[in-house]
Amino acid sequence: MPIELVLNVTLQGLLTGLVYGLMALGLSVIFGVVRVVNFAHGEMMTIAMYGAIVAFGAWQIDPLVAMVPIAALLFALGYVMQAWLINPFINRPEHSQFMLLAAVAIVMVNALLMIFGPDARTTLVDYALDSVEIGPLLADKVRLITAGLALAITAGLFAFFKLSRTGKAIRACADNYMGALTVGLNVKQLYAFTFGLGSACVGAAGAMMVLLIDVTPNLGPAFTLQAFVIVIVGGLGSMPGALLGGVLIGLSEALSGLFFAPSAKSMFAIALLILVLLFRPQGLLGKKA
């Protein structure tokens, strides 16, 4: 096997992995603060993808531009979900929260099915097939741009949590729920804001993802699972961990597709997940609970 091919596939996996990482970052942020596992995460991703498809189909808006309003819309969706549905469930047992979000996921998948039908949709931007030469390597332009954007958004989010007052308040809630209540933080509102932020991440990732793959309503559960795999490998609640997990999963998918069968690619990701769960359940970059 020529070394260029391997390197090219590796680069592709790395770039795609960064977009995966952004998707999983949303899940990680939500879990890290609200302590609720968003079982409707992948379904929200598909909603964002269909948003980009509609924007492109109806008004020829480039998905990378549509990303901004889509992320805003998903923020609103996430905020409302947390404020209306999930906040009353904060102190309920895990299986109860899980059932609620599983029900939300069922509604989302099937609402998309009702509106758009089961067929795969795609966008074809005019730079879809362009590529960039980097030394001996050849990278898709689309993947380069999306990976760069994913990194930029992650950096922005990181800065928000470290520097802004709201970000610090949210971290305080995550650190100590009772303490945050005691100093007078509006925890429920901050939770809703956090869920909104996590949803905006997945919204941005979804808008980018339409440039990379076709979308069907049934992709939702698969994305949910993938997001879980990524955040657990990286460390639930850890922001750099989500990116690292995304890159690892992107790489393992690309390389196992090259060396084995493309259809077996998720097997390696899941094997990685099982190993991490057993030997380092807090994830590669997670803090011990």
């Binding site: 549905l85 059932m99 609620l100 599983a102 029900a103 939300v104 996921a105 069922i106 509604v107 998948v109 099937n110 609402a111 998309l112 099915l113 009702m114 039908g117 089961p118 309503p217």
Partner: peptide
């Protein structure tokens, strides 16, 4: 297609 499951999900929730 899908309408049944939308109602189903709402009842469940």
């Amino acid at each position: 297609p899908g309408i049944k499951h939308v109602f189903y999900g709402i009842c469940l929730a």
